[in-house]
Nucleic acid binder design. Structure first.
Lengths: 118, 118
DNA sequence: CTGGCATATGCCAGAATGGGAATATACCGG
DNA sequence: CCGGTATATTCCCATTCTGGCATATGCCAG
């Protein structure tokens, strides 16, 4: 999954994934919606394909691309440990902000380089 | 958040995040645990810092780095729409795999490489 | 101020990457 | 078989990124 993040690092590729979220699309359709030259679209699709994000279905001379869930699931899994971390912190942050509000009112005295009270 | 994925594209940087998940660490500690030269560690930290993944606390002449939840939360949010997609597909996938097993037995048609047609 | 430690930054060569234009491959209809 | 459409691949150029090395900056102790 090392290359998953690299594949997502490009905005055009993320855009492609978002479009495919709605329905499968041919290269030509993506070309129009992204307003990119066709070779560029094909190249991005190649990266996404090799990273396992999409797969192509051959219909006549078109390739219809669609999402595949695998790398997204792995991405979610990678995020798992961090999710525990931040959900712990969101609460703490809220409480902390409340506290800061209180403290700011009291600590208005010593401001070494701040602005002087008018 | 455009650069978040780029920041995560590097294995060393992901490793740093994992380490910081446990506890905050100085640059020197990371240097040892990652077995990377110090300038390299500092550069990776800079990328992570600018992408908002970490922040530094100055203690004497050390910098103690720790995680910040913000970009991870955004990453999770970006994943949201796709999560709906794949959770719908996991079921379908399982059924699909069962089917493929059946098909494979029939479709053993040998086409290893381009042979001339008879 | 001087020395010493911890960290950051600047510089350089090498590798990877994206965009653009041209071309090659694959498939269809007749 | 041929022309025409749809997609993939190749080549080239400019940019970017990484790693290694050297060096600058910041901070503490005396």
């Amino acid at each position: 999954m090392e290359s998953s993040f690299a594949a997502l690092a490009d905005p055009n590729r993320r855009q492609i994934l978002s479009l495919l979220l709605g329905s499968e699309r041919s290269v030509g359709e993506l070309e129009q919606e992204l307003e990119l030259p066709q070779p560029s679209v094909s190249k991005h699709l190649k990266v996404l394909r090799e990273a396992g994000f999409v797969e192509a279905r051959v219909e006549a001379q078109r390739r219809l691309y669609r999402l595949t869930p695998q790398p997204l699931i792995e991405l979610d899994a990678w995020l798992g440990p961090f999710r525990r971390f931040w959900s712990k912190h969101v609460d703490a942050l809220e409480r902390h902000l409340d506290r800061l509000e209180q403290l700011e009112k009291k600590a208005q005295a010593p401001t070494p380089k701040g602005k002087k009270a008018p």
